[in-house]
Simulated assay, not measured.
Amino acid sequence: MTGPSTFRIGGDLEVGRLGFGAMRLPTEEGPPREGSLALLRRAVELGVTLIDTAFLYGGGANEELIVEALHPFPEGVLVTTKIGVARSAESGEWALDGRPEVLREQVDLALARLRAERLDLLQLHRIDPEVPLADQIGTLRDLRAEGKIGRIGLSEVSVDELARAQEIIDVASVQNRYNLLDAEHEPVLAACEAAGIAFLPWRPVHTVASETTDDVSAVAAELGATPAQVALAWLLDRSPVMIPIPGTASVRHLEENVAAAGLRLTPEQRARLDRHRPAPPQA
């Protein structure tokens, strides 16, 4: 990784530039849950300081798993969660729900599950197209004024949506899908770089691991690394605002992911990898 190994989200909340996405962790009782607890503790041992979760991940079960594993959270460890998706009482189906009263309720429930007085970084999981954006972002702004939220982030947004949100709040982070072989949100990354906003790519290695190119394989061999590690090293090299959040239920893969922060791509290797980037859409 070139550049600094940490990033200050919102200008003041310092985290390491390689986080952990907890979505894939099993939460059911028994050996699967015990494995998840051990993995979360190992992540912190390895120096991971940002753990990403969401209400959607098991209706809060993922948040409760993290609390069981790590609470009281070690100093410097940030657990960030997401709201704005709800399950229908009638059908049991999950759907976007950005109504102000729902967002308020979900923040209160997240505070209770995470045993926190404040959510240092709270992200809107998706913008609900059925609710005015100003109502959704305004509710988060009000919750921050009330001291329940420290910093506000967005997920899976366009450049236009980000700009409109910035008219109402200071956006601290954006969490969009992005990896070596997926350039759809390149314009959003550029907007985040210009504004100093943390960019948390989800699915940072999935596509690369399943569609490895000859150049990715060759660079991996040259570095004595895996294609997934090369994909993470490329992301960390790509932008100083980048904070990948790879997820896994395997301690071995976790350790490999964390080790990727120590890889150094040469300019020639970076150029070979960049050749496989699809053309980004016009902003």
Rank of each mutant, 00 (worst) to 15 (best):
Q136H: 08
D135W: 13
L122F: 04
L121N: 03
Q136K: 03
L121Y: 09
P129D: 08
L121R: 11
L143Q: 14
A134Y: 02
D128H: 09
D135I: 02
R141D: 09
L122H: 04
E117V: 01
R118M: 11
E117P: 06
H125W: 10
R141P: 02
Q136Y: 06
H125E: 00
T139P: 07
H125S: 00
L133Q: 13
L124H: 00
L121A: 07
P132H: 09
G138N: 12
A134C: 00
D142P: 11
R126T: 01
L133S: 03
R141V: 03
L143A: 06
A134G: 02
D128A: 04
Q123D: 01
D120P: 08
A116G: 05
D142Q: 15
T139K: 05
L121V: 11
A116I: 02
H125L: 03
D120I: 04
E130W: 00
T139A: 11
V131C: 01
I127H: 07
R141L: 14
E130C: 04
I127G: 05
G138A: 08
D135C: 01
A116Q: 13
P132R: 07
L121P: 07
A145R: 15
E117D: 15
I137H: 07
R118S: 13
A145Y: 03
L119R: 10
A134T: 12
R118Q: 14
D142I: 10
H125C: 02
R141K: 15
D128E: 06
L133V: 04
A116D: 09
V131M: 01
R115N: 14
Q123S: 06
Q123T: 12
A116R: 15
R141F: 08
R118C: 14
L143H: 10
D135Y: 07
R144N: 04
G138P: 03
V131N: 04
P132V: 04
V131R: 02
R141S: 13
H125Y: 09
A145G: 15
E117A: 13
Q123F: 00
D142M: 14
D142Y: 14
P129F: 05
V131E: 06
P129K: 00
L122C: 11
A134P: 00
D142E: 15
L133G: 02
D135G: 07
L143I: 11
P132A: 05
T139F: 12
I127L: 14
R115Y: 12
R126Q: 06
R126L: 00
L133M: 13
L121G: 12
V131L: 01
L133C: 02
R118I: 08
D128T: 08
V131G: 02
R144C: 09
I127C: 09
H125M: 05
